[in-house]
């Protein structure tokens, strides 16, 4: 690489310094502290701290409530990702046709990206409202089943999944559209001449070409749902009914800042680190691939 041209000695350090200071003070130090705290028990008033070895982890891994929060997190994250990526691909594919007003459609479908998940959650809370929401009202025409999220855990889960997926879908559409528009029309025309129908072309040409983007979006949506979804849960369900929508990040907060069980909260943070390491490894593998193959 023959790019490095400037020969100053101190300047590059000075340029990196602000970012490194923030990184060390607000990322590395607290992460290290999470690790350390996870081996301690702190009394609720924070005045006494005693080393307890792996006790926090043992307690977590033998608690049904913790497994429930792991299960909830996976249902939530994969539900959001499947819905947001699937719908994103579908809408992006529709938005590549040559139709009147295309620009307006493309602008409108990006909008939900600008809406905060907790705000989306509150809108959907009303749409799902058991007594005066428009959705139970419409559903009332087809079934007498009561879609009451205050009573039924799975309805509450569906509510937060739909609200969160809705805020992700715009971002996904933007990426899929860019990917679809980068596919040379000549390739598709050639396939068309060879007698491949629209669906066939989509399945055997478009989808494989989109697979790097799809993979990237799946990982990004998973990371987002795993670690960025505290707000929607706090604003809408508070983890309830029961523990039906209590995801891992919500439990970290609940145990740490409401229950003041700092050791357990820190141990949960450490377990979350494993999740994020796996997901990020996947993401960087993608970045690497992209750089090598294109």
């Amino acid at each position: 690489m023959k790019r490095a041209v400037f020969k100053n000695r101190g300047l590059p350090y000075l340029l990196v310094l602000p970012q490194i200071v923030v990184t060390l003070v607000f990322f590395f130090w607290p992460a290290f502290e999470s690790l350390r705290l996870s081996f301690f028990r702190t009394s609720p008033f924070g005045d006494k701290t005693s080393f307890v070895g792996l006790e926090n982890f043992v307690n977590l891994l033998s608690s049904a409530e913790y497994y429930q929060s792991i299960a909830n997190t996976f249902v939530f994250a994969f539900g959001v990702t499947a819905l947001a990526v699937g719908l994103g691909l579908f809408v992006a594919a529709l938005a590549t046709q040559k139709v009147r007003g295309l620009a307006a459609y493309r602008t409108a479908v990006l909008w939900p990206y600008g809406i905060a998940p907790p705000i989306a959650g509150i809108i959907f809370l009303f749409i799902f409202h058991p007594s005066y929401g428009v959705l139970p009202y419409w559903l009332g025409f087809v079934t007498s089943y009561e879609f009451n999220w205050l009573l039924k855990g799975w309805v509450a889960m569906a509510l937060v999944i739909i609200a969160t997926a809705w805020t992700h879908v715009g971002y996904n559409i933007a990426f899929f559209l860019a990917g679809l528009l980068a596919i040379p029309t000549s390739v598709l025309e050639a396939a068309s001449v060879d007698g491949a129908g629209a669906l066939r072309r989509f399945r055997s040409i478009v989808l494989p070409l989109l697979s790097p983007i799809t993979f990237y979006l799946v990982v990004v949506n998973l990371i987002f749902s795993f670690f960025g979804s505290f707000g929607v849960i706090h604003a809408v369900t508070q983890g309830g009914p029961g523990n039906a929508t209590e995801i891992m990040v919500f439990k970290v907060y609940k145990d740490g800042f409401i229950g003041l069980n700092l050791g357990s909260s820190a141990a949960q943070s450490v377990l979350l680190m494993f999740v994020v390491i796996v997901l990020t490894a996947l993401q960087f593998r993608f970045v690497e691939k992209k750089v090598i193959y294109s």
């Binding site: 990322f27 590395f28 130090w29 607290p30 992460a31 502290e33 999470s34 705290l37 990371i223 670690f227 960025g228 505290f230 891992m248 990040v249 970290v252 907060y253 740490g256 800042f257 700092l262 909260s265 820190a266 943070s269 450490v270 979350l272 680190m273 994020v276």
Partner: peptide
């Protein structure tokens, strides 16, 4: 290191 993994410290 997203916020939830270092929230308490």
């Amino acid at each position: 290191l997203p916020l939830p993994v270092r929230i308490v410290p």
